[in-house]
Nucleic acid binder design. Structure first.
Lengths: 346, 346
DNA sequence: CTGAAAGCGCTAACAA
DNA sequence: TTGTTAGCGCTTTCAG
């Protein structure tokens, strides 16, 4: 009755009072510690449920020196890449009963600093820094704290930080080889902006894969320097076909570029996949599944990347500095076959 | 020196020791409270910076009865709609120095229950429930707690809950009127799945807008029942044009449907926007900006919706139950003009 | 102007 | 088997 007056959460003292035991006894009963008479335990438990009692995690954290809380620093929260990454991280941490503080930094250094400071003050057990491209970045400054930090998609080049990356070379190789497997001979590449490490890696791997399999790269068969969008893909495909009407396969550096390329090819009277096979990169549902035909593309396994990053952080949290850091680990990609390449030749 | 041995965060006691004052004095100095000799204050401050001291928020929260923390319950975190919504919420709360716990529930009731329980135990100041469609939903169960809760995109139909919704009717009206403004006479509608309230509202508003302006709806000029994807848009446009080769404007219930419709029209030899004008709905960048031509579409102002939801929650947190609840508020949409409709007729 | 001490809600050690 | 108490790190009275 008395409780219904106040609107603050019931405390263990309330439970103890209702059950007619001491506060220490109530604690033991609720945590299953020590030796208690079964009836007492029951009495306490029913008092607790009756009151809807949940121990205040703030206090428990204070006592345990752990908050079961981590911070997620995302530089580009609304970006398409972050989403499965965040989902993977959240899945893994939720399994470990850990809650995630979401902090979006929009590549604003000052904002990042504030968020970090706030996270540290809130005593998070660890921090995950999430990027949206594979270029190197400075490590975050956590002062003299020993809070574990891992990086996901975006890495710190100091040789002593755990970073989880996409293996762009692996993906590009799989894309290129798939074009070979469906019987394409004159294979071209439409690249992204060369300032991005991701674009560079995909290009390099395209070249080495072609060489490894003794395929000749068509002259001017590599075009790049545009943006990651359909407009560039459209323009690039036109440029490409103007030089080489015999191109029969194109590895595009991303799905939106592939979308634009398909559009251009249709204008030129080439059908995909009958005349030309197209492979994208990203497996971005929004594009790959709404393209016509649906895109064969490379999945970067971001969900798994998030899972790995989450697991690594958990290890560091639970085993402290005894855990050897992972260094930069690159996760392989997966080829997702849909309709833009046609069937493999036997 | 002593401090460099331990790796836990410096406490106010450490600061007080270093400054040679009592712990109470240190607190006053750091919080600018009470009367202190300037030199003492300075001594404490420099000790604090030297140690990199940040007060433990856990403890402060315990003392203040507020954690400066809210929970974000998202049923569909990876959905395209949640993103700007979350960004708006986070922006608003970050301004108020509030951190956000991200909880994705994947429409899993058990998971939702666990998350809520955990949030409550962590003493969050409030909870925002984020949906991805405007259909009604049950309210979350927070027991006898008085924690403020608001709903964003998805609402509770009990007349006493603050819910923030998209005004689908407003958006559909603007879309339809724009088609009229560019001079279209034979206007059709491709709807989404009728089981979605969003699809129903858009349809209804299309009809009333047409009637209000004394436009005749072409017979069989409304097709619906497919999914929210390009495949359906493609199919529906074919169906539509088979009956009515004179259709010159189509209001599509979403951007992906519009993408598919454009594709179909091109196959039929109709160019967009010269022969037929197309308006989408969502202003989903991924689609609208990568479509060819770029889509004229309706923006649901999700960012603003998130901002409003965040602000409402803040009010409730700061003014308790004295704040009148907002009820269900619907925010207007915005027409975004790009290239799929052509220029307005004067 | 500064120090001492109580107490937030809970756990864990120690008494009884 | 149960009760008592110290203390986590900080703020806030109340003495000095």
């Amino acid at each position: 009755m008395a409780r219904s007056i106040t609107n603050s959460a019931p405390t263990i003292r309330d439970v103890a009072n209702l059950a007619g035991v001491s506060i220490g006894t109530a604690s033991k009963a609720l945590n299953g510690k020590g030796q208690l008479k079964a009836t007492t335990r029951l009495r306490v438990e029913s008092a607790a449920t009756q009151l809807g009692f949940r121990p205040n995690e703030l206090v428990r954290s204070l006592l345990r020196g752990r908050t079961y809380t981590v911070g997620l620093l995302a530089d580009d929260f609304v970006g398409r890449f972050s989403m499965p990454l965040l989902a993977g991280i959240e899945d893994t941490l939720a399994d470990a009963e850990i809650s995630v503080f979401l902090c979006t930094t929009r590549e604003n250094v000052e904002l990042e600093r504030k968020h970090i400071s706030s996270l540290l003050a809130k005593q998070v057990d660890g921090i995950i820094v999430c990027g949206h491209r594979s270029d190197p970045r400075p490590s975050i400054d956590i002062g003299n704290r020993k809070t574990p930090v891992v990086y996901a998609y975006g890495y710190v080049d100091d040789g002593k930080t755990s970073c989880f990356q996409v293996d762009n070379a692996d993906g590009a190789r799989k894309a290129t080889e798939h074009l070979m497997n469906v019987g394409r001979k004159r294979i071209a590449h439409i690249g992204g902006p060369w300032s991005w490490r991701d674009a560079q890696k995909r290009l390099q791997a395209f070249i080495t894969t072609m060489q490894d399999h003794h395929y000749e790269i068509p002259e001017n068969g590599i075009v790049g320097g545009g943006n990651w969008d359909a407009r560039w893909g459209y323009q690039a495909a036109h440029q490409l076909m103007a030089n080489h009407s015999d191109i029969d396969g194109i590895f595009c550096a991303c799905d939106t570029i592939a979308l634009g390329a398909i559009d251009a090819l249709r204008e030129l009277g080439r059908t995909v996949p009958d005349d030309v096979s197209i492979v994208g990169f990203d497996n971005w549902d929004a594009i790959a599944l709404n393209s016509h035909p649906n895109l064969t593309t490379i999945d970067m396994n971001f969900h798994q990347l998030g899972v790995n990053a989450g697991r690594a952080l958990l290890e560091m949290i639970e085993h402290g500095e005894n855990v050897p850091h992972h260094g930069v680990v690159s996760l392989p990609c997966t080829l997702v076959i849909r309709d833009s390449c046609g069937a493999p030749t036997p």
